[in-house]
Design a protein around this nucleic acid. Structure first.
Lengths: 247, 247
DNA sequence: TGTCTATACTTGTATATGGAACCATAAACT
DNA sequence: AGTTTATGGTTCCATATACAAGTATAGACA
């Protein structure tokens, strides 16, 4: 009677090229997805898998271990393995580089540099960078365009200690983002998104009417414990939208 | 002379409770993070690790294999293992359940049900659900409040084929989101975020002035190939902000 | 009845061993 | 010179084996 089960495993493994441990993984993963194994249901122990499928315990172990790290099942030392509850529906939104996004749509990306100069940190920037009062920073303002239409005001502050040559770059050839990521390794970053009304200058730069709402992204990037850059990106609501790829 | 290297591994392993393969992982992970091993640099082969650290090849294998699945290194069959290039900076934004978010801030979450009835799909909804023209749907509108202040209008459409009892629920006890995720397993979802100006009704429901910009999230959730629900969530820009936890 | 103990079963780790598949390079051959 | 063939190194997979450590349960004991 172990024959039937072994056969269904064989289905997964018959197409050669699939490792045995993958076949075992897929076997249980399918049972979970189809609902045949419901949340909290018990998964056969490693030794039971050995007996039923005729594989070694180490390959059973690898199959279950990887299912666990993928969040499909939960393993409890000394007790057993159980189907994990599906994650509470939270969706991940990928905030991407504007230039890449535009190019991927096969549109033309151009940038206009409005400002590129040193400056001093005000109270807010001190807080963001975690730097002492009046610290020196670099400041740039650029307008990104998609097929000629302004789509983002990039208002960026840069830590000169980490990127001393920032002001000398030609950002029409290489976006600030690209330069910075090549210059220093990014270890962490965070983002905030909100809806705001732009001021007069911003309206003019984005070529939009006075009361058009905008998406404002604030993104901080870190190298170790140091903030590399803080960028405020302002997008006109009519021409831009954040999208989750998938998942 | 292998002694020195073995000693530095011993540092990681000396604190008992750390498995050997973890110690090996940490050893190389630290070298990568510190910059001692730069991108594309070669990592010792499994056999070299065996010789240098005196561990078995399988534990060296597990260490490197896990580093690879974590994206720290890249392994090439028949060639060797190499330090991976750090990911281009794209950040993930987690879009969460509004009620959970509020409760996590230790604030009071209340909801007011404005509408709960069957309806027919218009052209847009047909498209979203992938249903035939004039299909039946359920429609609900609720206003979520944080400590009494309106913070979200949840405008939701539900596929009756998957959730036939939607209209009979008491959504003051359990949010629609919670009910749906308990009812049917969510296999996929996507989100879009944009900035918009609310209309008069929405302003009144959110208790905000006419020209306050709002964040509008559209979220579709799937069960297999079927759309379970489409929800439009409208947040006042002054009281809400999307935030990335970390990563 | 309540408490301790032995036992069996579980996952977790570590080793030794073997073969397959893949790649680069050197050597042999045309 | 150009092509083919060995060869040594690499990752990858699978097995057999052993012990450690956690958990639950049955049974002995007070």
């Amino acid at each position: 009677m172990t024959k039937m089960i072994a056969d269904s495993l064989f289905l997964y493994h018959s197409t050669k090229g699939v490792p045995l441990y993958e076949a075992v993984k897929d076997y249980f993963h399918d049972k979970i997805r189809s609902g045949a194994l419901k949340p909290n249901a018990r998964i056969p122990s490693e030794n039971e898998i050995v007996a039923q499928f005729g594989v070694s315990r180490m390959t059973a172990n690898r199959a279950l271990r990887e299912l666990a790290t993928e969040g499909k099942i939960i393993r409890v030392h000394g007790v057993g393995s159980f189907v994990a509850r599906p994650k509470p529906s939270s969706t991940l939104l990928e905030v991407r580089n504007i230039a890449d996004e535009i190019r991927e749509r096969d549109h033309a990306h151009t940038v206009r540099i409005e400002l590129l100069e040193p400056c001093r940190a005000n109270a807010v920037l001190q807080e963001e960078f975690g730097l002492p009062s009046g610290a020196r920073l670099f400041h740039s303002i650029m307008v990104h365009k998609e097929d000629g239409a302004p789509i983002q005001i990039e208002n960026r502050y840069v830590n000169p200690a980490l990127v001393p040559d920032y002001l000398d770059q030609d950002f029409t050839q290489q976006t600030a983002n690209a330069y910075l990521t090549r210059c220093v390794a990014i270890t962490r970053s965070d983002v905030e998104v909100e809806a705001v009304l732009p001021n007069a200058t911003e309206c003019q730069r984005l070529d939009i009417p006075e009361n058009e709402p905008c998406l404002r992204l604030k993104r901080r990037t870190w190298h170790g414990d140091d903030v590399v850059t803080v960028v405020y990106a302002l997008h006109p609501g009519s021409r831009y939208r954040l999208t989750s790829g998938r998942i």
